[in-house]
Each structure stands twice: as C-alpha cells, then as structure tokens.
Design a protein around this nucleic acid. Sequence first.
RNA 1: GCUCAGAUGGUGGAACUGGUAGACACGCAGGACUUAAAAUCCUGUUCCCGUUAAAGGAGUGCGGGUUCGAUUCCCGCUCUGAGUACCA
Length: 969
Amino acid sequence: MYQSVITLSIRKDIELKALTVRNAEFLYFRNFSKYMDYQFREIENKWQQFWAEKKTYKVDNNSPKPKYYVLDMFPYPSGAGLHVGHPLGYIASDIFSRYKRLKGFNVLHPMGYDSFGLPAEQYAIQTGQHPAITTEQNINTYRRQLDQIGFSFDWSREVRTSDPNYYKWTQWIFMQLFNSWYNEEADKAESIEILINKFETGGSQGIKAVADDDVKSFSAEEWKGLSEEEKQRELLKYRLTYLKESTVNWCPALGTVLANDEVKDGFSERGGFPVEQKRMMQWSMRITAYADRLLQGLDHIDWPEPLKEMQRNWIGKSVGALVRFGLTPTSSSGEAIEVFTTRVDTVFGVTFLVLAPEHELVQHLTTPGQKTEIQNYINQTKKKSELDRMADAKSVSGAFTGSYASHPFTGEPIPIWIADYVLAGYGTGAVMAVPSGDQRDWLFATQYNLPIIQILDGQKDLDKQGDPTKEGMYVNSGFLNGLSYKEATAVAIAKLEDLGNGKAKINYRLRDAIFGRQRYWGEPVPVFFKDDLPYLIDESDLPLFLPEVDKYLPTESGEPPLGRAEDWKYKNAQPYELSTMPGWAGSSWYWYRYMASPEERDQDVFAPEAAIKYWKDVDLYIGGSEHATGHLLYSRFWNKFLKDLSYVTEDEPFKKLINQGMIQGRSNFVYRIVDEQGRGTNTFVSAELKNNYTVSAIHVDVNIVENDILNTEKFKKSRSEFESAEFILENGKYTCGVEVEKMSKSKFNVVNPDDIIERYGADTLRLYEMFLGPLEQSKPWNTNGIEGVFKFLRKFWKLFHDDQFNFRVSDHEPVKAELKSLHKIIKKVEEDVERFSFNTSVSSFMICVNELTDLKCTKRAILQELVIVLHSYAPHITEELWTLLGNERGSLSYTQYPKFNPEHLIENEFAYPISINGKMKMNLNISLALDSHEVEKIVLENADIKRYMDGKTPRKIIFVKGKIVNIVI
RNA sequence: GCUCAGAUGGUGGAACUGGUAGACACGCAGGACUUAAAAUCCUGUUCCCGUUAAAGGAGUGCGGGUUCGAUUCCCGCUCUGAGUACCA
C-alpha cells in the first residue's frame, strides 16, 4: 500500500516525487534519468574552469604550424547584455577555429570590446555616472555570458578601444594620417615631408595630389617666401586627415556631427533623432583618395557579393566628363559653370542648366528682376526637411536666375535655373539638362516650357517622356551627327579638351569621412592649436588621456564636453582640440592589435613587425552586414594607408568574410476577449478559436510559452491583472499566436542565452544555434526544436555508457558498418565546415549517432574518433568523454582531425559519372570499388539492356542507385 | 524606382557540379513500458484517390522554355526580405 505521494519542487525545472511504500522508502525522481545521465552543468563548469586555468587557448606568435586568423566583429558592450542572436556568429567562428586547430593550424581567435560609444555617454548624461564605470560593468556581464558558451578565445589578447594603452595607437595612426598626403602619381600615401620637399624644389608645379579644390599654385621661391602659418594652411589642404569648413550632418539631439553611414533616412542611426545639414569647421579623413583602390580591391577578396555590391554603390564611381559653360556676356573673363555629366554625347541636347539652390554662384547669377523669385525658392527648399524631399521625389520645382551661359560648341545662350533635384554635394552641384535624354530634365522642361531637342534617332515618345537610350545615330548634334554612342562620347571629349572647355572625369559618390565628434566618450584628438591652426602633439606625449569633466554635456558657450576639462592645454599653453574621434576610429585597425601577444603589448609599436609578418591578415571574418558601408569600408581604408607607409604587409585586411544572418524575435500572443463596450474581459481564448470572438492580441512573455503552448499557471502569476484569468482551451491546451518581429524588451520576445544554458547547457545551445538554419540567413529564434538537439547529446553520451550510466567501451576491432558510419561523418563534417554549412553537419551527427546506437557500437576505435569530429561543435561533452576514454585531460585540443578513408565506404553507393564512346556523360550510382571500365562492361553486357537496345548503340544509360532508370537510344 | 537575396510538407530546413524531392529535427497520431504521468523506445506522417495489403495520380510561388530527366539552367510574372535613393 502506498501511504503517501509527495511532490516537491527543488528547482524550477526538476520536480522530485517521493513515494513512501509501506515501511520501506525510496525516492522517485521526476525526470530522474533526464538529469542523472548527461550532467551537462557539472561537465561544462569543469571544462570552462580547466581551459581558463590551463590557458588552453593562448596562442603563440612563434609556431612551425601554418597560421590561421579567425576574427569576430567585436561587440559594443551595451547595458542589455547578450541575447541569443549575438552569439550566432561567435559560435560559427568558434567551430571553425577549433576545427582549424584540429587540422594542424596555429589559430589566432581573439575577442575584445568596442567600448567607446554613445549609449554609455547618454547614460552618463542622465545619471552622472562616468561612462568608464558603466562600460566596465557591461563588459563584465558580456564576459560572463561569453564564457558560459565555451568559446576558445585567447583572452590574453583582449582589446578595449577605450583603454589608453589601446587608444594611444588609434591616436598614433591619426598622427600618421595627418603627416601624410596622397601622391596620385605613385598612387599611394606618402609622408608630408616629401611634399614639402617638392614644394621647396619645384613649387606646386607638376604635383598630382588628392587635395582640396582650392589649392594654390606657386613656385619654389614663392613657397619659401610664405610664412609658417601660410605654409601650414596650405599643407592642411593636402593632409589625409584635415580640418575644413564643410557641410555636415548635424544632430542637435545628440549634439554632434555624424558621418553619412551613421544617418539613415534623415535620422541618426543611434537613437533615431532628426539630422540637419550645417556648415561647420570639421575634421575629415580623405578616404576619397582611396576610392578607386577601395573599388578595385573588392575584386580580389572573398566576400559575399551583396556586400561588395553595397560598397560599390556607396563608392559610386561614374565615368563621365566635366563640361564648362562660359557665362554670357562675361564669358571672356573666364567665368564659367562646370557641370559633371556621364552623357557628354548628349551635349547638343542641352536646353538649360540647373544649379543646386546651395550653389555658390547662385547669388552672383541672379538678375535683379529674378531676386525675389530665387530667394523665395531657396527659402522654400530650406524649409523642406530631408524626408519631405524624398516624399515627393516624383515632382520637380525650380526658379530661373535670369542669367544665361553659352553652349561650349554652338555658343547658343542657355538659361540657368536652380532646382532642388540637383544636389549640392554631388559632382559640381550643377547639371546640364538634356530633356530628351533624362526623365527629370524632361519633367522640368515640360513644367517650365523649356525646349526639348531630339539628339538620337532612336529616341521614342519624346512628347510623353525623356528617353535615355544609347541606340541609334545622332541628329541635331553638329559634328556628332551620324555617329554612334561610343564614337560620339570620344569625339565630344576630345573636342572639349581642344577648346579647353572640359575634360574626361571620373566622379565618386563617396564623400570624405567626417571624423570629429562633439562628444566626451571617445578618443581625444592628439592636436593642439596655434594661431587657429592645428598641430600634432609630440609622439612621446601619447597617449593623450581623456580628461575628467564635471558634466558630460556641452559647455554654456556650446563647446563640446572636453571644453569643461580644466587646463585642457598642450604644455599648459596651447589649447587642445575639443572634439573626440568617432566610434569607427578604434575599430578600423583593432585586428592588428590582437597580433601583439600580451608580452609584446608594452613595446613601442601598435603591433610588432614580426607578428604582423607572421599573422599578415584575417583569414576569416564573421560579422553582420550592417557594417558594410561603415566599419568595413573604413577598415579597408586604414589598412591600405598603413600598407602605403609599409607598417603592414597586406593590401586588404579581411580575406574572407561571412555575414551571419540576424536572429529575429518570435513573439507570442494571447487573445483576450473584448466585450461590447470594447473593454477587455478576464477570458483568454486559444489562437485557433479566436476567430469566433472579438479579441485583442496581447504580447506574452515567450519565456512562459513552450512550443507555442502557454503555461497558464505561470501566466496567471506573471501579472496581477491576470491572476484570475480564465481560458478557453482547445484539446486541453492554450495555443498562442505567433509573429516574427525584432527582438526587443517591449515585445517580450527576448531570449537570454543564460536561460537556455541553465536548462540545456552550452553544448546544446551551440548545436542548436547552428541547427536552426543556414548561417547567413536571417531567421526567427524559436526553441521548438531544441529538445531534439538535447536528446541527441544525451544519446551521444549514452553510446559511452551502459544502462546504469557506467562508463563502458570495448577494445574490439570495429566492424565494417561501424567504420562506414564513422568515415561518413568525418568526410561530411570536413566538407560542411569548409563551406560553412554548419546546420547540415548537426543533422549528420544525429544520423551517425542513431546508426551507432542501432549497431550497439561500443568500440573505442570508433567512439574516440567521433569525439574529435564533434569537438568543434560541442567542446565540453567531448572533452569530458575524451578524458573518460583514458586520454590526458584537455589534450583533445591538440589532437589531429581524423583522416577520412574512402575504403570504408566501398559498400556505399555513390554517384559516379562515366562516359561511353567518349561523348555521353551519365551518372551511375554504383559502388566506388568499381572503376569506369568495369561499370561500362557491366552495362554493355547486361542482357536486359541488350534486349532493350534492340541492336542499337545507347546514347545514354541512366542509373539511379545501381538500377537502370532510363536508356536513351 | 534601382540593386541584391529568397519562395520546397503542419513547422525549421536537406538535396554539393541537372539524376529516387522532402534527409535530419520539431509537431502530430498510434503503440510498448507505467497504477498514472514524466523519461525512454518502436511505428506512421507531402497531398489526393483508394485499400486487408496494394495500385494510381499530382507535387519544390505562378506561366513558359531547354533536356531522356529540372528544386537546380534560361525567359517572363507574382510575392517576401534587405540595401539604396532626385548621383546628372
């Protein structure tokens, strides 16, 4: 007789059932076997501790092994910690690193933090807490979470961009850029001393440099006669980082300027505040000097095509011509409007010119009679926000200046208009309008009654639209008449150059990158001012420490926060620069810092020459595609610059790049029945039945939902208003609604990796994140299949144990079927990892373990190899089993990946292409043991085939898995 | 608008250069063990028709094409996602 049944709960996921039978007592564990066999918690803690203590993953810069560098995009340590989406890429790179180590490579796999940035500073403004403190706390959370997942990072090489020992070198690189100019002849950056030398010996004559538009021409004598201040002012126009007044994206809410890639649809990327255009004195980086090399370099790196395409579009190379339209009646004075066009062949179709409203000549060109109209138009466009302009992209508007230019070939007067469809920031801020060949020009001409001249006989329907065709022969085009598009372009450019009215020109959409930020939490710019001109501080004074301030806000006079720092002066005399560097500064070279071992960190270089020569570049870089036009472009730029100065060896920093997809949230909903008055009742209806009622959907925390079934008890406890909730169930269950959204706190769909690890362990999390789908594809997080992965690991564990969970393997020789199973997985995993198809190998592991379970395989020779193959994916359980198999603790990381032996697959059937009569190709699924001659013989001697062919020669014989499927005669 | 990526069962997804579509997993259904549940194991599971078992037909977003053979290659379309946007 049972006297009592008591159910206890010792932890939220384990229920303990105590049964008392007569006088004898025993404990009956609910989920007993689930927690007694595979003790993942114990195993994982043990090995994580072991790896940390033994510094298992510390990398040496001196090794006879070939090098392999696997890099992750280092995270910004935000206050929210990691969610399950973050580790996806890290898990993939960790699998790859571990695999490469087993393959005999010396693998550099480091991690660090991009720890300067806006959120910590915004938090500091609200709370007054120093950003360094918040950052430190956040980093600690990240580190704890990362450690739990069992990554093989070499933490001794950790970097933090906000660490003075690190940003010293960010500042140092800034100084190198300041001290350099771009020599277009050598097509590389050179020391500014070389430029000064050229000025001193030959003046500005013959110098081809990427520089500001307003550089002066002077002789050597004139240069020598300049004052120090004048010289510096001129040199600033050549330096690769320079101070210049320019139109910038100003974000009033953040109180700082932003680079183009930090602005999305007229709002700041961080925070989503409106951004406006403003003219300001600003630090910039002359990335445009590298535009063409950045474009060319893309052809030689193994990156995803969409990402390369994004960079190509961002650089935006257009091949065309610059055309000068002299101003009448003063054209003799040399005044002219320069326009950029990609269709110089259409020059005879020009019927008007259009300037951007911000164009500098607008005021000068406006005739007294048109003054009011032009001014009104300018005011009107100023009022339009970025968004408004985008909204009515289909309509055009403009105003006539009253002035005329003269056509470079015909001398005809061409009216000059202004319109906001012409952008001040692209080309010259002026266009020649060819209404017959361009839709916008056509719209404008139609609206303002300007003439439309057909220039190609291939143009159609010019009364309805502009036709940008290049087909046909030119008409109404003077000396271009009768030519084709290609000929006309060449002839027109040659003629323009003859007349001095233009030249061929390549134009880029890429702008120089704004470098200064009016913020506190960033690298101080190592510059002081003398006579309002910037000078570098001495290299020996690096790092220039970020000073303390009383508040993280701008000063009363509107200066950046650094203006609050006391005695913020170089040598207590000259004022320092007050802006700091942007977020991308520290991340544009960090992969080189990892190359320096901790012992080498104190040396007076950003990374020792020998280390750079050994590690060279990043072999595999994994990260999100959102950095396509920011970090990844800037990093390539800095890398090329450092290469020009011979500090590094490779032209491109990241040889292969993989974009991991985003993990989206999977929100769950409950449906509350709404009464006639529209008020929510206390009754909730299951998703399938909700159409029978009027309901309102409410987000429900995904952590109390399992496989879309709501835990109604937990739901009642989750909020007081649900305490007495009632449910309309289906089949006794409450099914929740589902929607895929971004993972965010407000949608209650954030899944924390800690919770998954607590419940299933890190190895399950790692396998499951890979199992979820292809690495590069975006997908919603759902835990619906995680039980399957967990079950697999327990089956795997069971292979090594008997029914009582005693460790047990046999030393008998493996049988054929066992070897076949093993060698299949060796081959499969090798292929999968090499092509980053991690999800399919998880499936293959499952098949392999199922096969071996069916075979009741306990052979050491098989299991030991299997452990090595699985190790990259599930490092903890495999290390444990490796040790149980009698190997030295922790030695698994240094073993060799097993060699695939095709002999063991002989009985397997493979697709094997053969040809008959040297012509026909076919796929024959037949044993690998047969060579093509044997196959041919079998086929041709087969009586069935002979009969079928009826004496004719077969064109093709189609086999599927050894069976004849089709014979083509 | 332009550029790119994608569309396969109830679900996530597999199928490597054209060769048994739906591996593997989830879910679901049934069974074994159990007083009962949990755990574990076994069986079934693309759809339609049908059955004791069978046999048959359709099928990878839609419409065409190439091929002995197409999820795979080509052309056109629809939808979804991402990037970009008056770039002259």
